[in-house]
Design a protein around this nucleic acid. Structure first.
Length: 989
RNA sequence: GCCCGGGUGGUGAAAUGGUAUACACGAGGGACUUAAAAUCCCUUGGUCCGUAAGGGCCGUGCGGGUUCAAGUCCCGCCCCGGGCACCA
């Protein structure tokens, strides 16, 4: 019987669905295993072959764990809120829910065809009100919580209010301010608290809530009309779409992730995540230790953070960020005009400009001086845009002798540069070395940097001028988006003060709007809703204007993805986000697979929410995923052709341009890659020839033809490129012509043999690069099992690698070969004969390798081992049940359809997924002899076979007695003979 | 600049310090076939010597080192990919 992948795969996919083979129940009698993929955003483009890579890997592990007797939770869903659906809605007026629904259906179809063992009964979608009800509910918990630094965990805000009523806000409590530069909240007594108005109390509480509204510097993206989180901005432009981003101060919802900075850092140690990923998170959190130092200015002071308090004696000025609130306060009247002009220009410069012009030094003197806390000297206060508002306190003590940026600023403005370390040449630059010795006069003199830091902090604390401090780069997370297609934030406003909606009002569903764009006044789309206000007494939504206005921003994309993994445990629960029993049973994710692009976004927020829910006692663990693997990117091999974008009209022929060089007559010219590689001259020669073909009248004026041209490589759809990189000209031209708005001639500068060669390049697989390979096409031709095996066979999971469809033949042939072990001219022919030692060895070597490889997530080598087994068993003409049956089970996680079919042919009636994983036995792998490589001075020269049991001494004697060995020794005695039993013999001459 | 990965045949890639290049693609040769497809078999790191059987030398980015033995460990570079960055 021939291996018919189409029939087999369709049949088994149908059966799995019908029999709900992979539906899983919470069954505490069985050990659990939770294998999760990062759920996709269902984009309109559908899946390409890169997407399923991680899904296949986790599916193999999930299926393997089932064979090993685990109860496996292996769900899938959609991160279905997002920008593309909304952009499409703005363009077409179609509700994003509809687009999302269609795209999800398409994803489902594609995923089903690959044969995943997902339990679809647990599917979640973040845009489903039944799901986002709980996203909103968690938001309310954040809003109603604060972070207690004493117990180092989140507590209900009611406890804080109680504390204020009893003892006011003093000391440590007043320290919890985090986020962007804000004016510090002063301490107050219980009596004062009681005297505060409701409004004031609520304002105070904003400083503590884990979800809070504040004026914060945000990344505003005018093109997208929304605020972006720090990790959504790359190089000053939006990660999605590449639009410019500017700094803007806005009333903005934020989440106080900074309260968790230390725990997010510490938690990394126990996680089985890749080193680079942990490193990326550590970087992002950016902990640095140092000191906070206060420089008195009149009755007030400027607080700075420094990692080098040991250089305090080298401070020659202070620099404030242009956005710093104290700038306005300290500027003298004489300097005011200049400072204000500078601040204006600095804040208007986009992040991008600031980054691009790192070398440009700018700043201005405020006219005021601060007092040095140790020496009492007058320290001038400057404003400079090299100081960032969002880091530390937004102010630095400038030590030009010890910090290169300060040094350059000092040089530029001719400020004093004081040496802080011994032997430093401060005329050339700052000495930033950390093993230097401090040379400043005073109590730090002669100390090594680390000792001096400690000593300086001691002294600061003694004098009340500062204290040791830990600072984090991590910022609070911007949580509001000026968008329609996201979770509404369940908040209403009274007197501009935010209040939580009652739980009974959840889910707060997205309102109907006439358009998905911002309002004419620039408010978010939700402000268009006619029914978007809250009636507090009736507890229901009423017409806009009739009740308290509801929040009009929505949550960012990462809200739902921060906790979705919990919902899978109990997806239909209407009472809670998941039952305590389900949470206890399934616990942490045992294996989480996804792309490394989520290193500092999703994966940080996801850990943050988990820790928060843990603090409130809502879940019994404080890290979401024990093990995490980043799958590499599957890259596309693009095909590029140089395109003559601009052909300049030659000198002397300009007068002709009006009639001859029109769009209709000027051809679109593509250049064969091999010609372009020869250089401009070669292209020019051919171009002149072409020119004469098109305008024969000017053939005689060859001296006039000096064409200027510019070659631009353009992406060519890879479906028009054959395996020799040659363009299939006819098909390409036909499609191109069909896409042109106006008819144009399409022509080529061809190779002498008439071919047009494309230039191949490996880059990201994407629609715009026309290099996308669709899994559907591969499955149609080769089958899902072949696709699964091939994706795994390409190389290590974590590594990026280019997709090359040609290589798939190998895995396809393997499956046919495997199939043929069971059949002899169309009929199943499996013998019940007892296997030979050689056959057992093949089987057990394979079981051993595959079992170990799955544990290491080394799937490429397991596939190779299956190939070896199939090759060897074919050579042994082995068709024995005792060998083939366990092998089929071992193959099942990788190629489930063919395994099911063969399992059925072997006479089984139940799905192979219920079969127990076959154990390997060492006894079948014992070798009776070993073929020793005999090397001389480390170079292998010959091989000699000895019994495996022979000891080192005997092997040595036998080797030295061998005539060929003796011949090579030329009668000389070896200096040394190394014998490693069952490994190697090395003779040192 | 700092922090992580990674450089091995024509290609994707294997290799607890112990026979470098498993497995697969591609290429070349052959069998079957009227032919093609499919399938099967052989060869395939470079180079030199030899009619041949066979043998020598060189080879894992570069230069050193440790070791009986290094793709693997150590030191110093180069290149590629990713992350962070006027971060005080």
């Amino acid at each position: 019987m021939a291996y018919e992948h189409k029939k087999i795969e369709a049949e088994w996919q149908r059966r799995w669905k019908e029999q709900q083979t992979f539906r899983v129940e919470n069954d505490p009698s069985k050990p659990k295993y939770y294998a999760l993929d990062m759920f996709p955003y269902p984009s309109g483009a559908g899946l390409h072959v890169g997407h399923p890579l991680g899904y296949i890997a986790s599916d193999i592990v999930a299926r393997y764990k089932r064979h090993c007797g685990y109860n496996v939770l292996h769900p899938m869903g959609y991160d279905s809120f997002g920008l593309p659906a909304e952009q499409y809605a703005i363009q077409t007026g179609q509700h994003p829910a509809k687009t999302t629904e269609e795209n999800a259906a398409r994803y489902r179809e594609q995923l089903d065809r690959i044969g995943f063992s997902f339990d679809w009964s647990r599917e979640v979608r973040t845009s489903d009100p039944k799901f986002y009800k709980w996203t909103q509910w968690i938001f309310l918990q954040l809003f109603n919580s604060w972070y207690d630094p004493r117990t180092d965990k989140a507590r209900p805000i009611s406890e804080l209010i109680e504390r204020f009523e009893n003892s006011g806000c003093q000391g440590q409590d007043a320290e919890v301010l985090t986020g962007e530069v804000e004016e510090a909240l002063g301490p107050f007594t219980a009596a004062e608290w009681k005297g505060f108005s409701e409004r004031t109390r609520q304002m105070v509480l904003q400083y503590f809530r884990l979800a809070y509204l504040s004026d914060a510097w945000v990344n505003w993206c005018p093109a997208l009309g929304t605020v972006l989180a720090n990790d959504e901005v790359k190089d000053g432009v939006s990660e999605r779409g590449g639009h410019p981003v500017e700094r803007k101060r806005m009333h903005q919802w934020s989440l106080r992730i900074t309260a968790y900075a230390q725990r997010l850092l510490d938690g990394l140690d126990e996680l089985d995540w890749s080193g680079s990923l942990k490193e990326a998170q550590r970087n992002w959190i950016g902990r640095s230790t140092g000191a906070s130092v206060r420089f008195p200015v009149g009755d007030d002071f400027i607080e700075v953070f420094t990692t080098r308090p040991d250089t305090l004696f080298g401070v020659s000025f202070i620099t404030l960020a242009p956005e710093h609130v104290l700038v306005g306060k300290y500027t003298t009247d004489a300097q005011r005009a200049e400072v204000e002009a500078y601040v204006r220009s600095a804040t208007n410069r986009s992040e991008r400009e600031r980054q691009a012009e790192v070398d440009k030094i700018s700043g201005v003197f405020t006219g005021r001086y601060a007092k040095h806390p140790f020496t009492g000297a007058n320290i001038p206060i400057w404003v400079g845009d090299y100081v960032l508002a969002g880091y530390g306190t937004g102010a630095v003590m400038a030590v030009p002798g010890g910090d290169q940026r300060d040094w350059r600023f000092a040089k530029h403005f001719d400020l004093p540069i004081i040496a802080v370390t011994e032997g430093a040449d401060i005329s050339k630059g700052a000495d930033e070395s950390k093993d230097a010795v401090i040379c400043s006069e005073g109590f730090l003199k002669g100390l090594k940097v680390p000792d001096a830091i400690g000593r300086a902090i001691e002294e600061l604390e003694k004098r009340g001028a500062g204290e040791g401090r830990i600072n984090y780069r991590l910022r609070d997370a911007a949580f509001g988006r000026q968008r329609y297609w996201g979770e509404p934030i369940p908040i209403y406003y009274k007197d501009d003060i935010p209040y939580a909606l009652p739980e009974s009002a959840l889910p707060l569903e997205l309102p109907v709007v006439d358009k998905f764009q911002p309002t004419e006044t620039g408010e978010p789309p939700l402000a268009r809703a006619k029914q978007w206000a809250w009636d507090e007494t009736k507890e229901r939504i009423v017409a806009t204007g009739e009740g308290a206005p509801l929040e009009t921003t929505t949550m960012p994309g990462w809200a739902g993805s921060s906790w979705y993994y919990l919902r899978y445990m109990d997806p239909h629960n209407e009472e809670r986000f998941a039952s305590p029993e389900a949470l206890k049973y399934w616990g942490q994710i045992d294996l989480y697979i996804g792309g490394s692009e989520h290193a500092t976004g999703h994966l940080l927020y996801f850990r943050f929410w988990t820790k928060f829910l843990y603090d409130l006692g809502l879940i019994p663990f404080d890290e979401p995923a024990k093990k995490l693997v980043n799958q590499g990117m599957i890259q596309g091999v693009s095909a590029l052709l140089p395109f003559l974008g601009k052909i300049g009209v030659p000198k002397g022929l300009e007068h002709l341009s009006g009639n001859s060089f029109t769009a209709e007559t000027t051809p679109m010219l593509y250049v064969s890659g091999s010609i372009a590689a020869q250089g401009d001259d070669a292209v020019k020669q051919l171009l002149i020839k072409k020119f004469k073909e098109y305008w024969p009248a000017y053939s005689d004026n060859e001296s006039l033809i000096h064409l200027d041209f510019k070659m631009v490589p353009v992406n060519i759809d890879i479906k028009f490129v054959d395996e020799h990189n040659a363009l299939q000209i006819e098909g390409f031209v036909k499609e191109k012509e069909g896409n042109l708005a106006e008819p144009r001639t399409i022509d080529f500068l061809r190779d002498p043999d008439g071919r047009v060669l494309t230039i191949r390049e490996v880059e990201k697989m994407s629609k715009s690069k026309l290099n996308v390979v669709n899994p559907d096409d591969i499955i149609e031709r080769y089958g899902a099992d072949t696709l699964r095996l091939y994706e795994m066979f390409l190389g290590p999971l974590e590594q990026s690698k280019p997709w090359d469809t040609h290589g798939i033949e190998g895995t396809s042939r393997f499956l046919k070969k495997f199939w043929n072990l069971f059949f002899e001219s169309d009929i199943i022919s499996v013998s019940e004969e007892a296997p030979t030692d050689a056959e057992q060895k093949v089987l057990h070597a394979t079981l051993k390798k595959v079992t170990e490889d799955i544990g290491k997530m080394s799937f490429n080598t397991s596939v190779a081992q299956f190939m070896i087994a199939a090759n060897e068993l074919s050579a042994l003409k082995c068709h024995k049940r005792d060998i083939l049956e366990p092998l089929t089970i071992a193959l099942a996680p990788f190629a489930p359809h063919i395994a099911e079919e063969l399992w059925k042919e072997l006479g089984h009636t139940e799905s192979i997924s219920t079969a127990a994983w076959p154990q390997w036995h060492a006894k079948f792998l014992v070798e009776s002899s070993f073929n020793y490589p005999i090397s001389f001075n480390g170079k292998t020269r010959l091989q000699l076979e000895f019994p495996a049991t022979m000891d080192a001494k005997a092997v040595e004697a036998a080797v030295l007695a061998n005539p060929e060995v003796q011949q090579r020794m030329e009668g000389k005695a070896p200096k040394k003979v190394i014998v490693v039993p069952k490994r190697i013999v090395n003779i040192v001459m």
